[in-house]
Design a protein around this nucleic acid. Sequence first.
DNA 1: CCTGTATATGCCTTGACACGTATATGCGCC
DNA 2: GGCGCATATACGTGTCAAGGCATATACAGG
Lengths: 115, 115
Amino acid sequence: MKSMESVFEIIAEPNRRAILSLLVSSQQSVGEIERRLRMPQPTVSKHLRVLREAGFVESRVDAQRRLYRLKPEPFQEVDAWLDRFRRFWSEHVDALERHLDRMDQSTPKKGKTRT
Amino acid sequence: MKSMESVFEIIAEPNRRAILSLLVSSQQSVGEIERRLRMPQPTVSKHLRVLREAGFVESRVDAQRRLYRLKPEPFQEVDAWLDRFRRFWSEHVDALERHLDRMDQSTPKKGKTRT
DNA sequence: CCTGTATATGCCTTGACACGTATATGCGCC
DNA sequence: GGCGCATATACGTGTCAAGGCATATACAGG
C-alpha cells in the first residue's frame, strides 16, 4: 500500500470534502455522517480512515460510537502551498476584487477584508 | 473530455503542481518546462492542457513556442474553500503555533511524532 | 451468553488517469 | 515547397483508488 501521499490527493475526493465540510460545524459520529450525506456506511468508514491517516480528522470513542472531528494541520499545509501563489495573484488585484465581489456579494460596497 | 470537474483533482497531480510552482516565478515555454522538470514533452503538453482547461494557466503564442503563465482564479477557489476551515483552526491557535514552530523551525528539539 | 447496534475491514470489479511511444500539426527558414 | 524545430494529439497499457457487498469486530443491555 503506497497510497495517498499528499494532502492534495486526500481532498481531491468529493465525498471526503463533503465529510470535512460536515465536520467543520461540530464533531459527528459515523452514523450521523452516513445519514446526513446519504452515503453507505462502509464508504463513510473508509473515507474516514483515509482522512484519519492523513491527519485531517481524529476519533474519540463514545460507547459503541466513534466521534470524529477535524484536525487543523493538513489544512495549514494546503494553506502554506497556496501562499506562494497568493503573492502572484496580488499582482492581479483587479481580477481578484471582481472575483471576491461575485462570491461575497452580500457586501454592496467594496468590502476589502482580510488577507 | 470527461471528468476533472474540480480544481482539487487538478492539483492532486504532483507533476502539475511542479509545473505550477515553476510558473509562479515567470511564464515559460513548453520546452523550458520540459527541460527544467526533466519530463517527457508529451507529458508536459498533456498536463498543460489539463491546467489550461481548468483555468490554471493560459498560453500565448510566440512564433513556434507557446508561453504559458498562471491565472489566479482557480487558486482563489481553493482559497475560498479553505476559508471555512480557517475559522475552525483559529480555535486551535495553540496547536497552530506549535505547528508553525515545527515548520519554521530553527530549534532542534526532541523530535516527537512527525506529521 | 445472546442479541442488536455501531463501526471497521476484506474481496472484487470497474473506471479514471498517467505514462510511453508514435505520429500529427503548426510555424520559420532556406 | 521541403526541412526542421516546437508543440499537440492518438492509442495502447498498467496502476490504483472508489464503490458495492459481505462479513468481522466491538460494545451495550437484558
